[in-house]
Amino acid sequence: MDEFLVWNPEEFDDVKQISIPTANVWVPDILINEFVDVGKSPDIPYVYVGNDGLVRNYKPIQVVTACSLNIYNFPFDVQNCSLTFQSWLHTTKDINITLIRTPDEVKEDKNVFMNQGEWELLHVLSKYKQFSVDSNEYYAEMKFHVVIRRRPLFYTVNLLLPSIFLMVMDIVGFYLPPDSGERVSFKITLLLGYSVFLIIVSDTLPATAIGTPLIGVYFVVCMALLVISLTETVLIVRLVHKQDLQSHVPQWVKHLVLEKATVLLCIRNKKFCPLLSQGSDLPLYKENNMNTAVRCNHHSCEGSRDTGRNLSLGMTVRDTSPPVMDSILHEITSIRQFMEKKDESREIAKEWLKVGYVLDVLLFRVYMVTVLAYTITLGTLWSVWQNA
């Protein structure tokens, strides 16, 4: 309202409105405090002036403004950006800022918002206040709070679901036999795939020095869980192949793992693992599978079946020369030692494999509890944010 641009329409052929070049009319220096770049707008050289002194300047302004973003809940975040209109030079004696429409009308007006993009307009809040630089002069300002919400469907499909699928496959990978090398290669493939996935989505996540979005923490923890899963697999595979050291399982390990842990974990048939009975990977040598047992001395060598010790082969070697007999005896002794050593190696393999299977079940359940606790924590944080 310009009190110097008032006239009586009856004195000027009932003219109530005219257009005047903007350069010929005083225009207030109303600016937006959040400006970070020069405003871009089409050049409209005229303003409308009414006979009551109302000057209408319909020049649209496209501006780049600074907005304090809260990215903790990305991509389910709601942002509140402010636009503050005020005059830098004139006080309320010269310029006073008010709304043409009521605050409720401004709050519910969404017609001018482009609703097909990434953001959804919730409402616009307006607030008027006066502030003073010194005790005698007051300045007026009008602040608009534009509340917008991000549409999370794109980020959910491209970020959250692939990560969840990889974590589910990591859990399924525990059902592979620990004594085979397939589990290690499977876990390494998952870890490599997740690393490539993080490289791809790194440009999608908002980068700030103030804080990290919750989804970024989620990705890091998922990567850590994959590393822990791979480490557990490597340890179990090394344990079930510990028979290479030719050392038996210590008694305290047998007591804790094969007796206490099996009862605690409710594992059936605690003395013999069910998977060991298959014998696919470890063809266990049993002494009763030997068809014959050979007994020799310096003068004779006779063989008998284990089930019939009284049946003699009837072979005497008295006429055989002593050098040949010593050679046969040496070969038989070597075979016997080899079979005993092989049988001992099989027993060691059985013991360590039992321990490996029990520890694998234990670590798998601990891993599942960790994943469950992590899921509950994320759900709790999400609920707290939703309620806030």
Rank of each mutant, 00 (worst) to 15 (best):
W252K: 03
P250M: 02
K254L: 07
L176N: 03
V227Y: 10
F174L: 10
Q243K: 11
Q251K: 12
R149M: 11
I148C: 04
S277A: 14
G216K: 11
G193C: 13
R149N: 08
T189N: 14
P283D: 06
K260P: 00
V147M: 04
K187R: 14
E232Y: 10
I267T: 02
L191E: 05
L230C: 03
V249I: 04
M169V: 04
G211N: 15
H241I: 01
E232V: 11
L198W: 06
S229L: 03
C222K: 04
A261V: 03
M223V: 02
K187M: 08
P213M: 03
L161G: 03
Q278Y: 15
W252I: 00
F197L: 02
G181M: 06
I188V: 11
G181H: 09
L245I: 02
I199F: 14
Y155S: 05
R151T: 06
E182C: 12
P177F: 07
P152D: 02
F174R: 05
P162G: 01
K270N: 02
S185P: 01
S195Y: 14
L198H: 06
P250R: 03
M223C: 10
I200M: 08
R238C: 05
S163W: 07
L161C: 05
F272G: 04
D203W: 12
R150K: 13
D281L: 15
P274K: 13
L225A: 07
L282T: 07
K260Y: 13
L166M: 15
V146H: 01
V196S: 09
V201A: 03
T262P: 01
H248N: 05
P162V: 03
F272V: 10
Q246T: 08
V172A: 14
V146M: 03
V184L: 13
K242Q: 00
D203I: 06
L205P: 00
R238W: 12
I200P: 00
V184F: 11
G173V: 05
L258N: 00
L275E: 10
G211D: 13
L226F: 06
L284P: 03
V234E: 00
R151P: 02
T189E: 08
V234W: 08
D203G: 11
L160E: 05
V157P: 02
P283Q: 09
A261C: 08
L275G: 04
H145L: 15
S280P: 07
V217R: 15
L235M: 14
N158M: 12
V217Y: 15
L264N: 06
I148W: 00
Y155Q: 07
M223S: 11
P177E: 01
G181L: 04
L284K: 12
L160S: 05
G173P: 00
L258R: 04
K260M: 10
R238G: 05
E232I: 11
L153F: 15
S247N: 10
Q246D: 06
Y155F: 13
L192G: 09
V221D: 03
D281V: 10
D244V: 00
K187W: 04
P206I: 08
Y194A: 02
G181C: 06
T208H: 12
I148G: 01
